[in-house]
Every structure is written in structure tokens, then in C-alpha cells.
Design a protein around this nucleic acid. Structure first.
Ligand code: MG
Length: 237
DNA sequence: GCGACAG
DNA sequence: ATCTTGTCGC
């Protein structure tokens, strides 16, 4: 039985339930490749989504950067109705759809996508970064701001210091300090990238801030668009 | 049964 | 994620 998890209903939202998004790609974990599948990485992209729960709308974006200079090469966005609530562990079903659509609109396809959420550091080894990577067949990295699963020892306070994120004796990811004395990021394999390569890229993408430039650019873009929709409204409405 | 819980 | 006032520091 495939049903959408109930969102804590406040009181006045008697909107009929929308059918769950069809996802042909089940068993994501079985398809994830944790070794490097990229040689020359010319373009690195960031992906993020912003929401307006009131209007049941969301906007996702993929922002492609020149991997060398970190300058923006191309931006792509996609707006759609929210069809799945936020449930820890089921984040993919909420955030991946708009990202897939935004990706399709890109002229310059990225060689690597850095996601704002976990990859294999997930209860079932299939976080949103892995879902996106497998569905697109593109290398992805999971770079989350907080822990979902796994345990770890305290991380050194200097930039680049890290501590393995473990489930038993298995390293599912790495807690990586991207800026001196600032809360570390949680890096994990998404798809077609090794954990070592993933951490290397995240550090390279965090020259001045805690979060990767890729994520920051995508976040700023969707935030601005969502704000416009909230203040000015949707076109033709 | 009680906590934990990506964005 | 989004909301939201104030505060601290450059
Ligand atoms: Mg985000």
C-alpha cells in the first residue's frame, strides 16, 4: 500500500490527498556506485529547493559553476506543487522531483552535483543525493548541515579536520570541518564518487563559508524566487 | 514505550 | 524548510 505520510494537520487544511509521485527507481541502494566515475570535472553544480507551505508550492534549482573559478555558468529552476511532506528519511520524495526537472532544462550538464542533504549516510543507504545521482546517472555528493544517522567522535577545530561518520564499523560518511571553529558539514557518497573525492570537493567548494559555494548559490536563487512569488504572487494569477 | 529525526 | 526581533562585530 503506497500512501503519503500524514502531515501534522493543524486544523483548516481539508485539501484532498494527492497521489504519491511515481518513482520507477526503487532499490536505490543497489544502484549506488561508491567509486569515482569522473575524470575531468569541468562543471560542478549545486542543488536546492525552497518552499511555500501555504500555497503548496516549491521551487528547485540547479546552479552550474566553473569548477576552476567557481563562477556561475548556468542556472535552471523548476516550480511545482508540493506533493509530499517532510519526513526524516523520506526527504527524497519531497525534494528530488523539482531538481530532476530543473536538471532536464540545463544546456550545460554538470560533471558533479553537490546536494543539500545526505547520500548513503541514510537509514537505508539511500539519501536524496543518491536518489538524484542514480536517477540522473550523474556523480553526486551528499553534503548535509546536520546528522541523520551514524555516530562520530569530536572533530578537530581546524578547517579540513574530519571524523568518520560510523554505523558500527562501517564508514558511511565523514564529518568535515570546512571553516575554522565552525560547525562541520556531513559529507557522504551520493553516486559515482568515492568518499575521499567527495570530501576533497567539498573543501575546495568551501573557501570562505561553511557551506559549499554550489549550495549557497542554489539556495540564494530559490530563496529569491520563492520570496518574489510570496510578495508579488505567481504570474497569471 | 521513549528518544532521534537531512530540509 | 520558514518565521522573526534583536544583538554583536566589522
Ligand atoms: Mg536546502
Amino acid at each position: 500500500m503506497n500512501t503519503i505520510p500524514h502531515k501534522p494537520q493543524t486544523s483548516r487544511e481539508h485539501r484532498p490527498q494527492i497521489p504519491p509521485p511515481t518513482n520507477p527507481t526503487r532499490k536505490i541502494k543497489a544502484h549506488v556506485i561508491q567509486t569515482d566515475g569522473l575524470t575531468n570535472c569541468q562543471y560542478v553544480a549545486g542543488a536546492d529547493v525552497a518552499y511555500n507551505e501555504i500555497q503548496q508550492r516549491m521551487v528547485g534549482a540547479i546552479v552550474v559553476l566553473n569548477a576552476e573559478t567557481l563562477e556561475v555558468v548556468e542556472e535552471s529552476t523548476h516550480e511545482m506543487d508540493i506533493t509530499f511532506p517532510y519526513v526524516p528519511g523520506l526527504f527524497s520524495f519531497r525534494e528530488v522531483p523539482p531538481l530532476i526537472e530543473a536538471y532536464k532544462k540545463l544546456s550545460t550538464k554538470p560533471d558533479l552535483i553537490v546536494c543539500d542533504g545526505h547520500g548513503v549516510a541514510h537509514p537505508k543507504g539511500a539519501g536524496m543525493a543518491s536518489h538524484l545521482g542514480v536517477e540522473l546517472g550523474v556523480p553526486t555528493i551528499g553534503c548535509a548541515k546536520s546528522r541523520l544517522v551514524g555516530g562520530y567522535e569530536e572533530v578537530g577545530h581546524e578547517r579540513s579536520a574530519s571524523s568518520p561518520l560510523l554505523i558500527g564499523d562501517q564508514e558511511i560518511g565523514r564529518v568535515l570541518r570546512t571553516q575554522d571553529g565552525i560547525k562541520p558539514m556531513f559529507v557522504s557518497v551520493g553516486h559515482l564518487v568515492s568518499l575521499e573525492t567527495a570530501c576533497s570537493w567539498v573543501l575546495k567548494l568551501c573557501p570562505n563559508y561553511r557551506q559549499p559555494e554550489t549550495t549557497r548559490k542554489a539556495d540564494a536563487l530559490v530563496r529569491t524566487i520563492m520570496k518574489e512569488r510570496t510578495e508579488i504572487g505567481y504570474p497569471e494569477e
